[in-house]
Computed example of a mutant assay.
Amino acid sequence: MRATRLIWLDIPWDACRAGLLARGLRRGMTVTDQNDLLAWAQDYWTRTTSSSFTGHERLYRGFAGEKAHLRTRGDVAAFVP
Rank of each mutant, 00 (worst) to 15 (best):
C16T: 02
L37Y: 06
L59P: 02
T49M: 11
S52H: 03
W8T: 06
A18E: 15
L59S: 12
W8N: 06
W8A: 02
W13N: 11
R61A: 09
I7R: 04
W45D: 15
R2N: 08
L70D: 00
G65C: 05
W40T: 14
D75R: 00
V76D: 01
L20H: 08
S52Y: 00
P12A: 06
V80R: 01
A68G: 03
S50D: 10
T72M: 06
M29A: 12
L9I: 11
R71W: 09
A22W: 02
A78N: 07
G19P: 10
R73T: 08
W45A: 12
W40N: 14
Q42D: 14
E66N: 09
T4F: 01
A39C: 10
M1N: 11
M29V: 05
H56E: 13
A78M: 00
G55K: 05
D36R: 15
F63G: 02
I11E: 09
L38C: 11
V80P: 03
T72K: 08
L9D: 11
T49R: 13
D33F: 01
D36M: 13
E57T: 05
L37C: 08
W8R: 03
T30K: 10
F63Y: 03
G74Y: 04
L37E: 14
I7D: 06
R47N: 15
S50C: 05
S51C: 12
G74F: 06
L38N: 12
G28V: 06
K67I: 01
A78H: 07
A77D: 09
A68Q: 04
F79T: 08
G28H: 06
S52W: 01
W13V: 06
T4S: 08
D75G: 00
A41R: 08
A78S: 05
Y44V: 05
A64L: 05
P12C: 03
A3P: 02
A64M: 04
R47E: 14
D10W: 00
G74H: 07
Q42K: 13
E66W: 04
A3I: 04
D33Y: 00
T46E: 15
R47K: 15
